[in-house]
């Protein structure tokens, strides 16, 4: 894949977001790096608790402080560091250049305001328009995301919508200001299987139409295979592998990714949602072990893994891995176990 440098819309470099709790410092995100190109869909995968949501929230600086804090790293949007923005700039930025939709559309819409009101609000927050224009815009958006019976639906409350409709409304709200990036944190987990497909298809179409980019967090590797151009794999708060989708699926060079991919053939559709194919548990994020974080669960671990925390390295163009044996996988000298 030929990726031009100036095509980058977002670059996350060595992001670290910690939570300072009574029980200790939870290193929820502890070294995440990736980038995103214009019109690209990036998939983020990793088992539960690996820091996917915290990464997404960190990008828009939505981590509640205290207890959370972004302690290190850079998040560059078109070269500008989001972490340097003041509160006013941040408000102008959120929902305008980068939007976000969440897992559960029931709880992420405010139950006491109409759908129309909540969409109009997103428009008015960023554009200098009167209510009438905002309403027309909102109706257009609702039509775009495929909500029937517009006039009535505009004045409905979230509880009068089905789950799929609510997520459509959330999408309408998120794209209201034609953002460059839409971040979707497990947007379909709370929905029925048939509705899931519709929502994903809708997001994909809108992305194509508006020439924007998507970051999609999911447990569903089928979704990744179908929509993602590139994939970032996370483990215990770290990026362990990052590359284009074919590489991730067919020649992964990190044992954790390898385990994930093997699981596809093993698990049926229903179970795929709860990605936990590899035996053992991730380490405590408060008390990370010495050496490689994946070592205790790794089938390929060698003595050296005990002492060295492998850095994320570019082992071939556009392919990043944090395993000291990655080169061996790449060259084929270390066979991937069945």
């Amino acid at each position: 894949m030929d990726l031009q440098q100036n095509n980058k819309i977002l670059e996350v470099k060595n992001l670290k977001t910690y939570f300072f709790t009574d029980g200790g410092v939870v290193k929820a995100v502890d070294g995440v790096s990736f980038d995103l190109n214009v019109m690209e869909t990036l998939g983020i995968v990793g088992e539960t608790g690996s820091g996917k949501s915290v990464t997404a929230l960190s990008i828009l600086r939505l981590i509640k402080q205290p207890p959370g804090k972004i302690v290190e790293g850079e998040i560059l949007f078109k070269g500008r560091n989001i972490l340097d923005m003041n509160i006013k700039e941040l408000q102008d930025f959120r929902g305008n250049r980068i939007s976000m939709i969440f897992q559960d559309p029931m709880t992420s819409l405010n139950p006491v305001f109409t759908i129309g009101n909540q969409i109009m609000e997103a428009i008015i927050a960023h554009r200098n328009v009167d209510k009438k224009t905002a309403k027309q815009e909102s109706l257009k958006l609702l039509e775009m995301v495929g909500i029937p019976d517009l006039k009535r639906r505009f004045n409905s409350y979230p509880h009068e919508f089905s789950g799929g409709m609510r997520q459509r409304a959330m999408i309408a709200m998120a794209i209201a200001n034609s953002p460059n990036i839409l971040i979707a944190d497990e947007p379909t987990t709370a929905l029925d299987v048939t509705i899931q497909a519709q929502i994903l298809e809708l997001m994909h179409e809108l992305k194509e139409k508006t020439k924007s980019s998507i970051i999609i967090i999911t447990h569903d590797l089928g979704v990744v295979a179908k929509y993602a151009d590139r994939v970032m794999v996370m483990y215990a708060g770290k990026t362990v592998e990052f590359s284009d989708v074919d590489t991730i699926f067919y020649k992964p060079c990190h044992p954790y990714t390898l385990g994930l991919m093997k699981s596809i053939t093993r698990l049926d559709e229903a179970k795929r949602e709860h990605l936990k194919p590899i035996e053992g548990n991730p380490p405590s994020l408060i008390d990370l072990p010495r050496g490689c974080i994946f070592r205790v669960r790794c089938k390929y671990a060698i003595d050296k893994c005990k002492n060295i925390l492998p850095p994320l390295l570019e082992i071939e163009k556009g392919h990043f891995t944090s395993c000291i044996r990655a080169e061996e996988f790449l060259s084929g000298s270390l066979k991937r176990k069945k």
Binding site: N110, F113, E121
Partner: peptide
């Protein structure tokens, strides 16, 4: 609540988030 995160993610100010989104629910 989650809808508070949504409200911030939209780009609303704290005043608007607390005074509108949280307020109406909290007042009930």
């Amino acid at each position: 609540n989650d809808y508070i995160v949504t409200a911030y993610a939209k780009g609303l100010s704290q005043f608007k988030v607390v005074g509108k989104h949280a307020m109406k629910n909290a007042l009930i």
